[in-house]
Design a protein around this nucleic acid. Structure first.
Lengths: 205, 205
DNA sequence: AATCTAGCGTGAAATTCGTAACAATGTTAT
DNA sequence: ATAACATTGTTACGAATTTCACGCTAGATT
């Protein structure tokens, strides 16, 4: 394993993993770089090259055993374990995120939900009881939580990020439509569906 | 303007636009590639180069007038107008999407909501009355809708996409965790928050 | 008016990324 | 057993992308 694998390669692995899980569900047991590539709209050469960064997962002549490759990718991505995630913001967006089943189904458990509004603190969303943001640092530190999602208005997102970083969070999924400044050792990913729409309107005549 | 501008450049423009709108809200009137770059974690040279694909929007020595640059980017991206968007799927995810205010605020109006379940048809989510998917082609064609969002289970996403494409949709924002096959002239963007989380766990020790 | 400074636009250089091609190797058919 | 075939892992190449560096212009300063 080279000391540093390009970021862009890492970003494709979850896509491969997702496709493998789908293939598995459909009853397939083996696949090839060609089949995967066709499904994903990615060249077979790229898939082979990406995977080869981590060692030989396939067999010449036969392709890849799906169960095995999936397990290897899970380990590379460190998603063979379960992760606890903190959610900050219990407004419309935060509530929707809290209720979304897809996180837990795929190994990311929402461990706690915070909001700054005294009205909301103490209420519940599904099984989650909303806690005051004042308690965020101590709770996150105690439970050793490393991943958080931000679903607060843009005006407060940076402030929340600072608090999270101070509490030891190292990965942030930001739903607020704003770029965050964080230390180099903290990872941030963004979700803004409007951005995706705007990327497509350019091409509409 | 070169005949073909790299996709990756286009994909950054909405990020610039979002930052400009924020700067504007904060009361700034001019900015520079350095200031923008610092906010976004992008090099100033890249910002200048990206923008220069579309003509000289700045002034040497002084930078960019925010209001002007914003308007130019809006026109380039074709988001100076309002767009109508169809939403397919009125389950948990679809309902959350329908209720999200961020789309309309930024020029994307949900024009109609479809679901295949007879139970849901006729009910409402906020102001949207859920319509049968059988009526999708005629409604989309009549209203000339070109953009759609898919929020149905993965199993049905491809089928829905085919229907949408048949009805004339040219841009799809897919919330289902599956890759879609569509003709070359149809654009697809994906939203899967779990993918983003998995991209970050790799880096957690 | 002359000088200075900030900062854009741009061509060239450097780097990163993707593709093509092929040797190696396992599988299947005869 | 041998031949024919399929498909990986990898290297070498070419394309795409980013960064560098500098000429040039607009405004600020003296």
């Amino acid at each position: 394993m080279p000391s540093s694998i390009p970021d862009i390669v890492i970003s494709r692995l979850p896509i491969y993993l997702r496709a493998l899980e789908r293939l598995s569900q459909e009853g397939h047991e083996v696949t090839s770089s060609h089949e995967l590539g066709k499904r994903l709209g990615i060249s077979s050469a790229q898939i082979r090259k990406d995977l080869s960064h981590f060692g030989g997962f396939g067999k010449q002549g036969t392709g890849y055993k799906i169960a095995f490759l999936r397990e290897q990718l899970r380990q590379v991505l460190k998603v063979e374990r379960e992760w606890e995630v903190a959610l900050v913001g219990a407004g419309d967006l935060g509530s929707a995120v809290a209720r979304y089943k897809g996180f837990a189904e795929r190994g990311f458990h929402i461990a706690c939900v915070f909001d700054s509004s005294p009205e909301k603190v103490g209420r519940s969303i599904d099984k989650f009881s909303i806690q005051s943001i004042d308690q965020l640092p101590s709770i996150i530190q105690e439970r050793g939580i490393r991943i958080a999602m931000i679903a607060v208005p843009a005006e407060h997102a940076q402030e929340v990020a600072n608090t999270l970083v101070g509490a030891g969070v190292k990965a942030i999924l930001n739903y607020a439509p704003i770029n965050l400044s964080v230390p180099d050792d903290v990872h941030v990913q963004y979700i803004d569906p409007v951005l995706h729409l705007q990327r497509m309107t350019y091409y509409l005549t």
